[in-house]
């Protein structure tokens, strides 16, 4: 692996820093409204349901179901040259209907990937200084 090629590094801001701090500590944190309990992802400075601005990150279960996926065959960034094919996935978190996030599905043979399959979070160091929350089939060792 060419260690000189860095992944696209997230650029956190005041609204999103909690997410990356959580990931470094191997916790999946999602912004939640302290007034009505609604989860908000991607992070926004207001609750879309009750318009409260009193929001705080909360650790979620780390469970998910596979909403959809695509197995990307081409490296459209130098970092993925030795990583294709990879499974880009949208997962839905059980904490709230329609609460989704983008991730990669790992530890699953590509011919066994199935929309609706139960997943759980797993944290991976993908490059120097970057940990990402990936998902794997629930119960996988």
């Amino acid at each position: 692996m060419d260690t000189l090629v860095k992944p696209p590094m997230p650029v956190p801001d005041a609204l999103t820093e909690f997410f990356w701090e959580g990931v470094r500590a191997h916790k999946l944190m999602i912004l939640r409204c302290r007034n009505c309990g609604h989860f908000i992802h991607y992070p926004r400075p207001v609750c879309e349901r009750c318009l409260s601005e009193d929001l705080a990150p909360e650790e979620v279960s780390g469970r998910a179901t596979l909403y959809s996926y695509t197995i990307t065959m081409k490296p459209w960034h130098p970092f993925w040259v030795d990583k294709v094919p990879y499974v880009l996935a949208t997962v839905e978190l059980p904490e709230q209907e329609g609460l989704k996030m983008l991730t990669n599905l790992v530890e699953c043979p590509h011919d066994a990937v199935e929309v609706g399959m139960p997943l759980e979070v797993t944290f991976r160091e993908v490059g120097e200084g970057l940990t990402l929350p990936f998902f794997k089939p629930a119960g996988a060792v």
């Binding site: 696209p8 590094m9 999103t16 991607y42 960034h77 983008l102 993908v126 970057l130």
Partner: peptide, 11 residues
């Protein structure tokens, strides 16, 4: 929002 997309290979 790209910080939640590009690092995962949504390019």
């Amino acid at each position: 929002d790209e910080q939640f997309r590009r690092p995962f290979g949504q390019l």
